[in-house]
């Protein structure tokens, strides 16, 4: 006996929703301890070393320490400097400068 099409679809939909709910609402709970431990370590390090930035883009001053950048740093690496793509276009100038 073949499964009725809508039954198949509804089962898939149900399973999919369960997987989604499991991922979004249960998985974070299972890993909370791990995550909190990692976060605590990072926080500790930031406090201890007095860090100010995330280490995401290391290619230029204004992308590595983007909260510390001065208004002109994107233009100052050297006169023929290429734009650091794509991070140079993704990062915005520090909020307090844009004000």
């Amino acid at each position: 006996m073949v499964v009725r099409k809508s039954t198949g679809f509804l089962i898939l939909l149900f399973v999919g929703s369960l997987v989604m709910a499991g991922l979004f609402f249960i998985h974070p709970r299972l890993h909370r301890d791990d995550c909190e431990r990692g976060l605590a370590k990072r926080r500790h390090l930031v406090r201890e070393l007095q860090l100010t930035d995330l280490c995401l883009f290391t290619e230029a001053r204004y992308t590595r320490h983007l909260s510390q950048a001065d208004l002109h740093s994107p233009f100052q690496d050297y006169p023929m400097a290429f734009e650091h793509f794509p991070s140079g276009s993704l990062v915005l100038p520090p909020g307090h400068l844009a004000r």
Binding site: F24, H27, P28, H31, C35, G38, L39, C55, L56, F57, T58, E59, A60, T63, F82, H84, F85, P86, S87, G88, L90
Partner: peptide, 24 residues
């Protein structure tokens, strides 16, 4: 790959899940 661009060094990190029902 998209973010790396000119950066040689990219951190290896696992993000903490933080999606909420509102975003969904």
């Amino acid at each position: 790959h998209a973010l790396k661009g000119w950066a040689i060094l990219y951190p290896e990190f696992t993000l903490r899940p933080s999606v909420n029902a509102f975003q969904l």
